[in-house]
Design a protein around this nucleic acid. Sequence first.
DNA 1: AACGTGACTTATT
DNA 2: GAATAAGCCACGT
Length: 122
Amino acid sequence: MKVELKVKNKKSKSKKTDQNFFDNVYSVVAEIPFGKVTTYGAIAEACGIKSSARTVGWAINGATADGLPCHRVVNRNGELTGKMYFGDPFLMENLLREEGVEFDEKGRVIMKKYFWKPEKKV
DNA sequence: AACGTGACTTATT
DNA sequence: GAATAAGCCACGT
């Protein structure tokens, strides 16, 4: 059995872009619990596009001003790769610290302790 | 339509 | 563990 499942959901005449994709990302990010973090890959997987963590980051970038807790999204190493997109390079780290998230000596989030895996939406 | 870019990830050296 | 390469999807030019 093969899973070429590439469902594009053409139901809605999304002529410009797959709004569906953005919607999924937003939903997942919005559900990250207080004091927890997740990764781009995990979000991508929850949205059904496991192989496109990059696109997730790009999608979130457009949502920084959308009230999303995007500071809780880090890369697989727990590094705050997108901190420079918050305006202040320290804002992301500060927000996480205020939520109780701890960092190691290298400035990375202690993933084994604060990683939260989103539930699959697809 | 083609090419380059990117808040990523995995495998290889 | 650092540096490279390749794969990945969507967007802008």
